[in-house]
Design a protein around this nucleic acid. Structure first.
Length: 470
RNA sequence: GGUCCCAUCGUCUAGAGGCCUAGGACGUGGCCCUCUCAAGGCUAAAACACGGGUUCAAAUCCCGUUGGGACCGCCA
């Protein structure tokens, strides 16, 4: 019988849930779900100066939005200080850790000096041999790292990575203010929470040997490790604000669908043959570290946009009509709380779905269906609302006034009658009408548009266009 | 500076020594469809970083070079 898979996502609440964090969370989530395991959320807030409750809430909000539901937590490290302290005491008693009386200033100075001399900026372990306390100094606690031998990280993605123990230094596990540090708490928590697989960013690979020694000192077995490649910006530097939106919720606001973002994120570093689009079920079914790449990936907004358009095309109009409402409010097409005819909205979205890449675009296009008056695009007006089209528009208006069945079929027949009579192509009539009714030159098929706009508004808009021409 | 990681089209990637004349996707160009714009279809340009090995055979294995990244905190 094998041990049940238990994984965790452990962000520090010093910012919003960003793209990189979301991808790490996603891979943890997929691995847990694939193995019928447990996905734990843990907030690493031991840095009390930078962590805030607002960011914790923001991270939870981001997780919920992209549908990464966790099974346990969120646990907060600040709630567990007594646990860490007791582990520190144990190590101290067993001689596996020691008090360090060097001040932060001294250490900083030595670090700079070492850098300047081209030496490795490592703690030299001088307090290790100290016989007694230094009066008047509040000490920190350091871990006694072995000074010989080597440590092997057996990584699920990278294979065996070997570190010389001489490269590792006696790092601080408890600050002089009695708060524990990351490399220590992460191990204590992973032990306590019985984490079986540590799945995290590549940037932690170099920390792993240190942590392995903590496991050993505490007398526990190490979990399996999987270090994910980083996500970079277009200049190959670590993804940051400079590269545009990095917060997950920013994509929500821009009108992206959470599933599209998830689909995009998963393909950054993971693949399944040539398949590009995956349902959540497929992701869970197919996910495996064997298909995770090792190289860092550049974030490509264009591809995300394409995926989003695919997700919109494949969403039901009913679903989209619910999702688009906040965006209609945001782009000021409807007022907060304003009701729309649901069945009508669904029909309208049917025509717009495959030409909207985001919910924002969809909302904007819906504008000419909903608004009372349309604003003409200047160029479109000049090109199509002129003497050449005037008579056609007048004639069409007269014709449509009499039409009983304001449907696509009826409209098409009316258009055909006029174009045949004048010996012109459909486009010669459709484009002026399109400008008259939508204000621009791009829209769904003209008959669909008119049917959805309805007889009354169509006639009003034709009238206004004719007046505009003069 | 030291240590560690990484390296296929501009970007995401397929590739497990012969199935590779290196495949797919985004983006870009062209064509088709067409009332416009999309969507869709077809099509084109576009990559194994470099140098040595190993092998009958290397994108694939090994070594080196170069280039990128991460870590070296009383941050996580």
């Amino acid at each position: 019988m094998t041990e049940k898979v238990r994984v965790r996502f452990a962000p520090s609440p010093t910012g919003h849930l960003h793209i990189g964090g979301a991808r790490t969370a996603l891979f943890n989530y997929l691995y847990a779900r694939h193995n019928n395991g447990v996905f734990i959320l843990r907030i690493e807030d031991t840095d009390r100066t930078r962590s805030t409750d607002e960011y914790i809430e923001a991270i939870l909000e981001g997780m919920r939005w992209i549908g990464l539901d966790w099974d346990e937590g969120p646990f907060r490290q600040t709630d567990r200080f007594d646990v860490y302290l007791s582990y520190v005491d144990t190590l101290l008693k067993e001689g596996k850790a020691y008090y360090c009386y060097c001040s932060a200033e001294e250490l900083e100075e030595r670090r700079k000096l070492a850098m300047a001399l081209g030496r490795q900026p490592r703690y030299d372990g001088r307090c290790r041999e100290l016989k007694g306390p230094v009066p008047g100094v509040v000490p920190s606690v350091r871990f006694s790292m072995p000074r010989e031998g080597r440590t092997v990280v057996d990584d699920l993605i990278r294979g065996k990575v070997v570190f010389e123990n001489t490269q590792l230094d006696d790092f601080i596990i408890l600050r002089s203010d009695r708060t524990p540090t990351y490399n220590f708490t992460v191990v204590v928590d992973d032990v306590d929470m019985r984490i079986t697989h540590v799945i995290r960013g590549d940037d932690h690979l170099n920390n792993t040997p240190k942590q392995i020694h903590i496991y050993k000192a505490l007398g526990y077995e190490t979990p399996k490790f999987a270090h994910l490649p980083m996500i970079l910006g277009s200049d190959k530097a670590r993804l940051s604000k400079r590269h545009g939106a990095t917060s997950v919720m920013a994509y929500n606001e821009m009108g992206y669908l959470p599933d599209a973002l998830v689909n995009y994120l998963v393909r950054l570093g993971w693949s399944y043959g040539d398949q590009e689009i995956f349902s959540r079920e497929e992701l869970i079914k197919y996910f495996s570290f064997e298909n995770v790449g090792k190289a860092a990936a550049v974030f490509n907004p264009d591809k995300l946009l394409w995926l989003n358009s695919q997700y919109i095309i494949n969403s039901s109009s009913e679903k989209l009509s619910e999702m688009v409402i906040p965006f209609l409010v945001k782009v000021k097409i409807i007022a907060e709380g304003q009701e729309l005819d649901g069945a009508w909205l669904v029909r309208a979205i049917n025509t717009l779905r495959e030409r909207s890449r985001t919910l924002t675009e969809l909302a904007n296009s819906l504008g000419y269906y909903i608004a009372d008056e349309v604003n003409y695009n200047e160029k479109a007006k000049e090109k199509f609302l002129n003497e050449k089209s005037r008579d056609l528009l007048v004639e069409l208006k007269t014709c449509l006034e009499q039409i009983t069945e304001f449907s696509q079929q009826g409209l098409e027949a009316a258009f055909k009658k006029i174009t045949e009579k004048h010996g012109v192509k459909l486009g010669n009539l459709a484009q002026p009408v399109r400008v008259a009714v939508t204000g621009g030159t791009e829209s769904p098929g003209i008959f669909e548009v008119l049917e959805i706009v309805g007889k009354e508004k169509t006639l009003k808009r034709l009238e206004k266009a004719i007046e505009t021409i003069g």
